[in-house]
Design a protein around this nucleic acid. Structure first.
Lengths: 177, 177
DNA sequence: CACGGCATGTAATAAGTTACATGATTTA
DNA sequence: TAAATCATGTAACTTATTACATGCCGTG
């Protein structure tokens, strides 16, 4: 399960450009998969080579040409079998938690800043997830959205509690229970 | 912040072998960073080149030699400045959520299996995190442990609810609210 | 006798990140 | 006039994954 498969997933519901797909990653996949243009465009080229997608070039007035990608029958097939053979991993890679883990080697302001930054990122993610409720894409999309919302809101609560202690005592956020 | 830095972090609290460090990754870092021998041993070689660590070779009876790595002053310095310059990212990469998101293209048994597998992995992680309470390494380690425990228990609750609906109705777990 | 723990590594590959490169249009 | 949106891509680099390769010891 990599960027290529996620692109096929997006294209399963209709044709899109690389740019469109990126927006999809931002709005719907952000909570479980991160990808930028640097991985999306190469993925689309590769899918084209594999004949899992086709392109149509749309000329636009005053804007650069748009390339509309459309999934092929082979592409749908490949996507489904990839999905079925996926092992359901779930990995976290958190520089934030690494900093916290080693906060004893860090000046207190840095710890604080990291906490604030992370908290506001979580709040932003929560907002994104809540907004996404409007566009109920599929029951599966709704499940994954709610899953992440559960975890995000729990973490925001936790961090806000920790921050209070930090404010009151001016100490390392992890210093008490 | 990569495997090298995490190794320096471990070595900040005392000398260790690659094997020891791997155990540390399993018991204390698992919830925020994943690394196997294939990245730990090369990382240690690199740190040696950079003179951030030193080795001592310990011959053991009936067991393979052990290489004890010890952090140098330069290593401590490099670790601290890396920590201070780290931006506190937090990324999730979840094949599980990808499967759920696209569950409409998947047979219901696969969806169910994925949910069961993921749930038991979360339960295992929760157990690991709870066990780790005994060995209170540092306040920072305790913070990151509790952070992940909060999210993990919330997610276990959520998935157990979802599973109930699945059992009662024999339908796609995401199908209702 | 099989399995898990102890102990080290390499090599090939796959994958993703970052910076670079370009440029018009719309909106505040 | 600065910033955001639309729109595409490449190249160099860094990183991690996977499989391979070896072998003893203790326990059930």
């Amino acid at each position: 399960m990599d960027v290529k498969h996620l692109c096929l997933g997006v294209l399963s519901s209709g044709p899109a450009s690389g740019y469109d797909i990126k927006k999809h990653f931002e709005s719907s996949f952000k909570h479980f998969f991160v990808a930028g243009y640097g991985s999306i465009y190469p993925a689309l080229s590769r899918l084209l080579e594999l004949r899992y997608v086709e392109v149509e070039r749309l000329e636009q007035e005053r804007l650069p040409d748009k390339k509309l990608y459309r999934i092929t029958a082979a592409g749908r097939h490949a996507f489904q079998s990839a999905l079925e053979n996926t092992v359901p991993r779930h990995k976290v890679r958190s520089e934030f938690l690494a900093m916290m883990h080693f906060s004893e080697w860090l000046p207190p302001e840095s710890v604080r800043d990291a906490l604030e930054v992370h908290l506001s990122e979580l709040e932003q993610l929560r907002d994104t997830l809540e907004l996404a409720e409007q566009a109920v894409a599929s029951t599966g999309a709704e499940f994954s959205r709610r899953y992440s919302l559960v975890s995000t809101t729990a973490l925001i609560d936790f961090l806000q509690q920790q921050r209070q202690h930090l404010d009151r005592k001016g100490m390392n956020p992890a210093a008490r229970r």
